[in-house]
Design a binder for these strands. Structure first.
Lengths: 218, 218
DNA sequence: ATTTAAATTTAGACAAAACTAAAAATAGAT
DNA sequence: ATCTATTTTTAGTTTTGTCTAAATTTAAAT
């Protein structure tokens, strides 16, 4: 299992290829910032190895073995992210790049010990669930902030977009996971929201609200 | 700087190529379990990049830039070894393989934070000195146990051979870094030693004594 | 049912890093 | 000084992972 193969499996999983849905080479190429022809080559290789089902001109989907491998890499990525934040004081916008490297370290003992050191966390710093050793996800009943009705409230539990600019924006506006947010009002014109958070009121655009996951209280 | 290039620089350094001594392609190939022809190819590449001086049929030595790079990799390797032992309860015979992977992670912040987390250790689990950020070694006045005279004693501070079998042998015989060892007697016939350690007396072969570093007390 | 546009694959090339086999240079022995 | 034996390099090949350009297939539109 090479580093590149692992990255392809991870990407296919993130694009939904774990649910036996066919992902096009174009979609994969775009996500990985590479060319569709390169993806075709890799699709053949992964297919040979029994990690994906590949039908020419149709796309790829992960086999059971492929899902298992993808989940183990995602598990490592997210555990390392927690480690970087909790033990080394990285900020949540700094961890991704380093975790992209650490996720490829091959040592089962290492990642199990990291898991233990962190006291078996269930979510990474962006609120994404960490698969268990046997590949199970703990799903959470979460909704996008943009989709809950006026006057309802919830706890902020995750971000959909975990790009550096978005995370920095949230920091600057003191929006953090764990905060309770109440939707006071919606503006029909631009879908912006008036919210109350930690005692203060503020207005946020639809684009922000559509990238914040909350767990509803009432 | 590819992983392979880093491994070559590290090996050349360990073979003494940091002291502007010429290391033969054969010696490097043997150490890295590869072929001399492969080493020649790499020697040319590293030479192009200004990391080694390479003279055909003579061998290679590290340039200043090459030494600097080699030390930074060795620093990372040894810090990760300390991390694995101190924070994740790895044994000293388990750390090398994983550290070989971790040493190639590219993030200055990461290794500096690991250094800080470990409280800036000076030696790795095998007693090898950890270079500082600016590439300085803290040398220690150490001698091989086989080379100190009868009736002198010292503290065990490192191993010359850090192979798994040797380390396991030491564990089995309760020989650990930090132990005080006194040389009671030497056997002319096979150069074996009678030693006193932590209150007990035992006999060890020359091969063992020649792979243990001690810091003399008297 | 064609035509066209878009998506996808093939073919051929390249770079990194390795190998094997053959050629060339060096060093040691006479 | 010459001849070997050894070391080292060269030349050509392989694998992985990528690319470009050309060809092919699919899907959408008339």
């Amino acid at each position: 299992m090479t580093r590149s193969e692992e990255n392809y499996l991870k990407t296919i999983f993130h694009l939904g290829g774990g649910d036996s849905k066919s992902i096009t080479t174009n979609a994969i190429a775009e996500q990985m910032e590479t060319k569709p022809s390169s993806v075709t080559d890799m699709a053949k290789r992964l297919s040979e190895k029994g990690l994906v089902d590949y039908v020419r001109y149709q796309g790829v989907s992960l086999t059971d073995a492929g899902v298992k491998t993808a989940l183990s890499i995602i598990r490592k990525h997210r555990l390392w992210e927690v480690f970087l934040v909790k033990k080394l004081d990285f900020t949540w916008d700094e961890v991704h790049e380093v975790a992209e490297q650490l996720e490829h370290i091959k040592s089962e003992k290492l990642i199990d010990k990291i898991d233990e050191l962190l006291d078996f966390p269930k979510y990474d710093p962006h609120g994404d669930p960490i698969p268990t050793k046997d590949g199970k996800f703990q799903e959470r009943d979460e909704k996008l902030l943009s989709e809950i009705p006026i006057n309802s409230q919830g706890v902020c539990v995750g971000v959909k977009d975990s790009s550096v600019p978005f995370l920095k924006f949230l920091d600057k506006n003191k929006i953090a996971l764990g905060n309770t947010i109440k939707v006071m009002d919606k503006e029909d014109f631009d879908n912006s929201l008036r919210i109350q958070m930690e005692g203060k009121e503020m207005r946020i655009s639809h684009q922000i609200a559509a990238n914040l996951y909350v767990k509803k209280n009432d």
